[in-house]
């Protein structure tokens, strides 16, 4: 059984090509910039058998073309690594490309097994400095770097992603550190910068949770292209 938040049958933003995206429910992190606070609660969402999800994903195989496939996102998919392994194993058996969208904050045997059936990883490196990571995520950056090292050893193609939040991580130094991380890991074939968005305010309101970054502005196009140019 997988505990899921929702399914998006047409995903084009989370991994290459056209993708069937499963958003899992439950996340151990409490990032201040979180776009989906409704996925935090480990008891929320609904449960679906792995077989059923694999069957549903297969119904979209014709749309995947040469690049697309399934993406499992969250919440934090590593929390349900054993079940995601089962899902990916079934997808791969049907020739469906598998992609994992994660914060990389966990490592255990189940995660190792999962990586063995993962074709690509989208690794969300929220901050490149341990102090920042601790301040805005609430834990250390080191597990993420360790996770990336494992991806590198396993040679799993990886996209590093970072949400750009004005005043928190839109500095030149941050970009330099991000580049160093990229350069140290040949498995990384791309870095994607995503603009911080506040459309999620209504989700926070609905859950009666204060949105910690309510007063931080969204980055404009100019900031995004300036930072992208530094990559």
């Amino acid at each position: 059984m997988l505990r899921i938040h929702s399914i998006q049958s047409l995903g084009t933003l989370d991994g290459p090509g056209v993708r069937f995206v499963v958003f899992l429910q439950g996340c151990p992190l409490r990032c201040k910039c979180c776009h989906n606070p409704d996925t935090w609660d480990m008891r929320g969402g609904e449960t679906l058998p792995v077989d059923e999800l694999a069957r549903r994903a297969a119904r979209y195989k014709e749309y995947f073309g040469a690049e697309g496939g399934i993406t499992v996102s969250g919440g934090e998919p590593l929390l349900q690594a054993a079940e995601v392994y089962e899902l990916f194993a079934r997808c791969k058996a049907q020739g469906i490309h598998t992609c994992l969208d994660t914060s990389g904050s966990l490592m255990n045997e189940s995660v190792e097994r999962l990586l063995a059936v993962t074709d690509r990883v989208l690794l969300d490196v929220k901050y490149t400095d341990d102090a920042d990571y601790r301040a805005h995520v609430g834990c250390s950056l080191q597990p993420v770097l360790d996770f990336l090292a494992r991806l590198n050893e396993r040679e799993i193609p990886t996209i590093l992603r970072q949400v750009i939040i004005p005043t928190l991580n839109d500095s030149v130094q941050n970009m330099e550190r991000l580049c160093r991380i990229r350069d140290a890991h040949p498995c990384v074939d791309k870095v994607e910068l995503l603009p911080f968005r506040k459309l999620c305010q209504s989700k926070y309101d609905a859950l009666s949770i204060p949105f910690p970054l309510a007063d931080v502005p969204e980055p404009d196009r100019e900031i995004m292209s300036r930072l992208t140019a530094l990559l």
Partner: peptide
Amino acid sequence: DTLGKTEEERKGNLVSILDGY
């Protein structure tokens, strides 16, 4: 924006959607 991030991606994704449908 839902179709993809760049013009090239959008074209490719629309082709995939049509092929699939």
